[in-house]
Amino acid sequence: MKQEQWETLVAVIRGETLRPLPTGFIIDCPWLPNWAGHAILDYFTDDRAYLADNLKAIDAFPSTIFLPGFWSEYGMCTEPSAFGAVPVWEENEFPFAKKVIRAPADVERLEKPNPRKEGLLPFVIKRLQHLEPEIEKAGHKIRFAVARGPLNIASFLMGTTEFLTAIKTDPERMRQLLAIVTDFLVDWIAFQRECFPSIDGVLLLDDIVGFVSKRDFETFGLPYLKRAFDTDVTIKFFHNDAPCKVCAPFLPEIGVNFLNFGVQHTLNEMKDWTGGKVALLGNVPPRDVLADGSPEDVRRCVTDLLSAVEDRSRLILSCGGGMPPGAPTRNIETFIATASELTR
């Protein structure tokens, strides 16, 4: 991310209404490598492909902000791998992690991993360190520490069905699991910050919080997210593209000041539920419109989105979730151009 883009983000988060309104998109696998012409496995294993694909996207859409910039990821396998989950790779599929917890009682044997040495984490860090001179030469800095959130990691370790069942049938062990995962997350975020002093933001991705009630969120989400985000950075960025109504009112208390959410809710609803305290990144339908719609559909949708939103402060226009697989260049260009034209 370039310095001026970072400054734009910070200005929006502080409440400035910019003209034109900025646009931004979370980009990662699988959209990025496939858009750039690489197989997913090559993107993950070839540093040159990783760098080239990111730079290609940045060059193709220079007026938008790609979030969180260059970031450390091996898909959903990143953090689970440190707990011993076997990552499974297909040539052009998103990698996945095999479960390591067969029953809630297995939590008793779970140890907090060391992010400096275990799983794929040293590889994630080293790849970015190897590429950092070229990233900086291109005018960018690594700005965000990134991780899956505590419930998301727990659900990868156990299986989502099993985890969400166990919060009802074995709540004590699930609290124990989340405590271990969160301790690890705190270390992992601190390690990323130590390796890249330019980091001044944290992004956590956790859509499992969208599946639980308020009461369960207060028990199994709130305390752990609060701890994971409890670090001294300027931007605390949360992604949850599952339902967000339950967690939204708690986001300011958690410290979150920037949110990417799904298409279940409107921008006005999210502003209301977060008390206007959280900058929003959203929320054109990613699949039906940005990926599968025509440029005219995209134009219409961006126009409708803007005309419906009453307060344009703390807003970066985007899609509701990450960039969807297959989103074509023409649609992204139309999105950016329409947003710029209508908010100049």
């Binding site: 599946f211 009630s213 369960d216």
Partner: peptide, 14 residues
């Protein structure tokens, strides 16, 4: 109606 969430569904299903 938003009174039950996925965990409640899962344990009823179980």
């Amino acid at each position: 109606e938003g009174e039950y969430f996925v965990p409640e569904l899962l344990i009823s299903a179980r």
